[in-house]
Design a protein around this nucleic acid. Structure first.
Lengths: 342, 342
DNA sequence: CTGTTAGCGCCTTCAC
DNA sequence: GTGAAGGCGCTAACAG
């Protein structure tokens, strides 16, 4: 069924306002180098509004070879972290008149094929990349596209345009918070040692220890990945092998914290009396856990916003963008942390 | 910065293959009424692949007045339910060569303004509507657009094209499951009495009671909305006012179940020994709760998939689509349910 | 059956 | 300061 095409076109506006199409085009786009009498300008905008004129993006795109759309590619859609990034990016895009095409890795799909498709088939003007599995492969694929892109929540060698949060500083804050409560043995359930965020958070963990005058003990760091089961396994390992037992725990993600909490509960370790826990990146599940989880809140939505808007700046002006780190971080105190012993 | 336009165009392919542009266009689109020698067809497709030819969507859209894009509008992006619907819709769209524009209600934005924008500015070919706050206002706004649309996860009077899950049947199954375990006093924390899904689930609750030969007791139904705090408040009310106390609980959403569980824990009511709980619409938080929550799993992703693909069918063939209900439902047993008393 | 051609709606020089 | 005209890449009608 062919959708009804009832929209006014530029020629309708021009006719109704008694001017040329060119005049309408210039006024509507806010072309600064175009000087008209205020009266004419008003007449044009009034008529346009009255006819509900909206420039046809296909026609405009054909002429300008821009789609006024951005592609964002994320690993999974049903992950609150990415949802927040997307929300921010969408807001920035909408404010600037862009639309956002969301793509995610389908199982078995090459990461690079997604970039390809977005750029060649959908003709997005730029790419926001929140997934970068293999740094080498991904980055060179992106560069071969010769298309503007920005990395979000990740850095990679040879890529200047990125937007990240302060993973390291946030981790340090988490540890400092625990130390301030009086904890001396603070463990860390880390992510994958190959991933940017995890590396930063591990560094921040060490920073925090150092600042608090605490020694780094390798036995207190266990790799947990990003899942609940990973968190559970790591917690079991920690309970078995770390003596004396830590009194506090900094978990790399909320799901890891959740997995750890399940194991602690079964083992009869009380939270927070016997073990304080803090998680990274705040989210709804922090409230749902028992006890509710104290977290480090990071500006994920702003990260998405800045990524999209800086990308649009770059597309429009060709300006150089050197990368940014959002430092706005705070601890959200809930019930999973206390002084050692209660 | 103008993105490099290096893509081959149809004229390049035609030249390289020694045929006309029209021939290329027809072959590439798989025009059935176009007959060519197999050899020619192969030559064209080979050349197209070699040059990495991708039709320019702007040019095509300008000519055909179709954008090959769909809009989906959801209330919130960071809600796993909508994420799953989106994932399904995106898969269907991608399979059919469509892209998906995701829009969500910004605070203070009129719901109808989103439809307007998607249709008039972005020129989507159809709308997938997962949000319908005010049935009257929303439906008439949608109809005024005179544009193909489908309601997903909702029905409305006067709208035939919808895709829903079997909320009623799922609720009935939940109650039947509890009854089979031996429960006789089964409470229901319901959603808003104005919302389609909640109404259906309440009906299903009554169906389940009836089938199990249990009486309906209004004191056992409390409105909880859709949030954790709503669930908590409703649970408190239920503990105060329902005597004798129910031994099982069917919660309308996972967040409501989470809120209820928090209150029960504080009140010293053990789960499942003193109170069995089952939630509706499975999701990651079910695993994270303590104890892990038994749920009714529904085909949310398939719902999104079917909505998008039936909408595309309608756009392409003008075919009439009468609405569909996905009945594939199962109970996911976890640790929050047992026979009464343990 | 195949190829030529006339726009789709817009933007952007280039004349006036 | 304003308007006329060409063309972006593609498809569909029509001509051969």
């Amino acid at each position: 069924m062919k959708p009804k095409r009832q929209s006014a076109k530029i020629s309708d506006v021009a006719k109704a306002a008694g001017v040329s199409q060119a005049a309408v085009s210039r006024v509507m786009r806010g072309d600064a180098s175009f000087v008209v009498r205020e009266e004419t300008r008003k007449r044009i905008t009034d008529v346009a509004r009255e006819l509900n004129y909206q420039p046809n993006p296909a026609a405009r795109g054909l002429r300008t070879s821009r789609s006024l759309s951005l592609g964002i590619v994320v690993p999974e859609l049903d992950n609150p972290i990415h949802a927040k990034i997307i929300i921010g990016a969408e807001r920035a895009a909408a404010e600037r008149g862009y639309s956002l095409l969301i793509a995610h890795r389908d199982d078995g799909m090459e990461e690079t094929a997604i970039y390809e498709r977005l750029v060649h088939r959908n003709r997005v003007d730029g790419l926001i990349v929140a997934t970068l599995q293999d740094e080498q492969v991904g980055v060179s694929a992106l560069k071969e596209l010769e298309h503007p892109f920005v990395l979000v929540n990740r850095k990679a060698r040879g890529v200047e345009h990125h937007v990240v949060i302060n993973d390291r500083g946030g981790a340090k804050r988490a540890v400092a918070y625990l130390a301030t409560l009086g904890h001396q043995r603070i463990a860390h359930l880390s992510g994958s040692p190959a991933r940017y965020n995890s590396i930063c958070r591990l560094e921040g963990y060490r920073d925090g220890l150092q600042e608090a005058g605490l020694d780094f003990d390798p036995a207190l760091v266990v790799e947990a990945g990003y899942t609940m089961s990973g968190g559970a396994a790591a917690m079991r390992k920690l309970l078995d092998s770390a003596h004396p037992r830590p009194t506090a725990l900094f978990a790399s993600t909320l799901m890891v914290a959740a997995g750890a909490m399940g194991v602690l509960r079964e083992a009869g370790v009380r939270i927070p009396q016997d073990m304080s826990i803090i998680g990274f990146n705040d989210g709804a599940i922090a409230d749902v856990l028992a006890p509710p989880l104290t977290t480090v809140r990071t500006p994920l939505e702003n990260m998405g916003y800045l990524a999209a808007s800086s990308l649009i700046n770059h597309i429009q002006d060709g300006g150089h963008f050197a990368g940014a780190m959002l430092k706005d971080i705070e601890i959200v105190e809930r019930k999973s942390t206390s002084a050692p012993g209660g």
